[in-house]
């Protein structure tokens, strides 16, 4: 089963993302900040990471950098969940090794379409 790591400090966003992905048949691992996400990613291999950018403890950009240093996550798709206003975050994220981004607000359909494309 394809496993997706969903990282967001907002519980409602996490729930929404998880519910959508699980409904589409994905296995979802949740984390509420970058550090927790990093730990969970190390514990078991995930096929895709969806991460918010602004988070306490460790933000999304730092998470992406850390993940890319792990041999298992060199090529794993990592998508940032950003808001439109954070344009420079996209550049920063790309430089850190992000695959791409999904712009908030997004609806479940947009989320799934993007993920399906990335996972092929």
């Amino acid at each position: 089963m394809t496993k997706i790591l969903a990282v967001d400090d907002s519980a409602s966003m996490r729930q929404m993302v998880s519910f959508t992905l699980q409904g589409a048949g994905y296995e979802v691992v949740e984390a509420c900040d970058g550090q927790e996400a990093l730990n969970k990613a190390k514990q078991s291999q995930v096929d895709l990471v969806l991460s918010d950018v602004n988070m306490p403890v460790m933000d999304g950009i730092a998470l992406i950098k850390q993940l890319r240093t792990l041999p298992n996550y060199k090529f794993t798709p990592i998508l940032m969940l950003t808001t439109e206003s954070a344009a420079d975050k996209k550049t920063e994220g790309k430089a850190a090794g992000a695959t791409g981004w999904i712009v908030k607000p997004f609806n479940p359909d947009q989320l799934l379409n993007t993920i399906k494309k990335v996972l092929g």
């Binding site: 907002s10 918010d52 602004n54 969940l81 808001t83 908030k104 607000p105 609806n107």
Partner: peptide, 14 residues
């Protein structure tokens, strides 16, 4: 900032 940002992100989503 994070708190405001977070509310903004989820409120627009919902």
């Amino acid at each position: 900032f994070r708190a405001a940002h977070s509310i903004k992100g989820s409120s627009s989503t919902f």
